[in-house]
Amino acid sequence: MPGLELIEIYVFVLAGFVGFFTITRVPALLHTPLMSATNAISAISLVGSLVMAGADRGALPTILGFIAVTSATINVVGGFIITDRMLKMFKRADRGGARK
């Protein structure tokens, strides 16, 4: 079983900084898609759920793992689809089809 290593704290803090500096530059225009996007991305907890559901650690972990896989998959599938649906709607006026 992996213990908690210092390097993981580094990763967390640095990723937090990357997130902070990236996300402060997202315009208010896209705040709703941003929220649904980060929600879809954090459904990466699916990764942990998959191991739980498939590692054959007994009935309880398997059942909980199954529910966790289901919940996380809902967010992965639904989250990326709905983010794409929203982003697709944001268009420029571009009459004449000229793109900057």
């Binding site: 967390f12 990723a15 990466i44």
Partner: peptide, 12 residues
């Protein structure tokens, strides 16, 4: 990857 994605979501 969970730590990174979680940190991004948390920061956002």
């Amino acid at each position: 990857v969970l730590i990174i994605a979680g940190a991004l979501d948390g920061a956002s």
